[in-house]
Computed example of a mutant assay.
Amino acid sequence: MQTKHDAPLRPGDPRRVGGYTLTGRLGEGGQGVVYLARDREGAVVTVKLLKGGSSAGPRARGRFTKEAAAARRIQAPQVARILDARVTGDRPYIVSEFVRGRTLQEAVASDGPLRGAELRKVALRTAVALTAIHKAEVVHRDFKPGNVVLGPRGAKVIDFGVARLLDGDTPVTSHPVGTPAYMSPEQIEDLPVGPKSDVFSWGATMVYAATGRAPFGGGTNAAIMRRITDREPDLGALRGSLRGLVARCLDKEPEARPTAAEIARFLRAEAVPPAGKARRKVPRYRSNMIIALGVVMVLGFAVGLLLG
């Protein structure tokens, strides 16, 4: 089976991994190749295979093992589920839920920016996803439009290829990883990276969703990263309360940004109609009284006509 987004298997690709039959290629990154596959029952899944297989070095295997461990800790309908994993042997792999649909990157590039309720739904679901990720003490570290799939039941966050587990409240420090246009200043400057880094990436992703471009422009990676650390974001046509929220998320200082849970609470509150806008309910006894008075007045008028 091939989907609209997968490509045929190449001559060097395996046809089976574990108990899974590979049917097409979905994508390839620095760490592994992602395949479309079927399990023993025929259900469609995705299989991420570590590049290099048995020849992969201990560092690559260690990252792959951490990805599996991080993703397994997250249980939320807004995040693609990990179904199976084998991180030892000649062909380490991770099996995850296949989410049908286009990525946010593809949808905006094809159909234009999101608007109104559609934009707010994507904003809320992804904020809830990040809340669950951070509650599991995981930092995604590569939140971007290409890692949000607009599935039939709403947006889902995918791909934990560079995710890291947090040791309690201790932020993660590592060399810069991620996609430059959506990286936080602390990622670029090789500073401790915690959940607030994902919040910055969420803000940048929402700018793309609403405008069709990243908030710090294009060009070379070096130019983009310099703007992220030194310049204010361009929020373009983003309007209303969402504009103010996103601006807070894109603050250079992590401490000034809201948490993912605070973002979700704000967006949920915004979805509730403002007080005083609801139609006022008339008590039943008053409604019946008004009807009765109306009947009496009509009868009185009719009697007056007959007697006159």
Rank of each mutant, 00 (worst) to 15 (best):
D159Q: 09
R120W: 14
P171W: 06
P195D: 03
M183F: 14
P185C: 09
D198T: 09
P195M: 04
I188A: 10
F160P: 06
A155L: 05
E137C: 09
T126M: 14
L166E: 04
R141L: 15
R153L: 00
A181C: 11
V172N: 13
P192G: 04
V207Y: 04
R153A: 04
G194A: 11
Y182C: 09
K196L: 13
D111N: 15
V138I: 14
L166G: 07
D167M: 06
V139I: 10
R125F: 14
P195S: 05
A163W: 11
A163V: 13
G212I: 12
V199E: 09
L166P: 02
A123D: 09
V108Q: 03
V193Q: 09
Q187V: 12
R153V: 01
L114I: 04
R164L: 03
S201I: 06
R115M: 01
I158K: 02
P171S: 15
E186D: 09
P145N: 06
T173C: 05
V162E: 09
D169N: 11
R125M: 14
I188L: 08
T170E: 15
A163H: 11
V207L: 11
A129W: 02
A123K: 07
G178C: 12
G116Q: 13
H175Y: 12
V148D: 05
E106V: 11
V162I: 15
S174C: 08
P176A: 10
N147L: 03
V157S: 05
Q187F: 12
G151I: 01
A163P: 09
M183E: 10
F200R: 01
H175K: 12
D167L: 10
V149K: 04
E189A: 13
H134C: 13
A155N: 02
S174I: 00
E137T: 14
K156A: 11
V108N: 03
T179G: 11
S110R: 15
G212P: 13
E118N: 01
P176V: 10
V199P: 02
R115H: 12
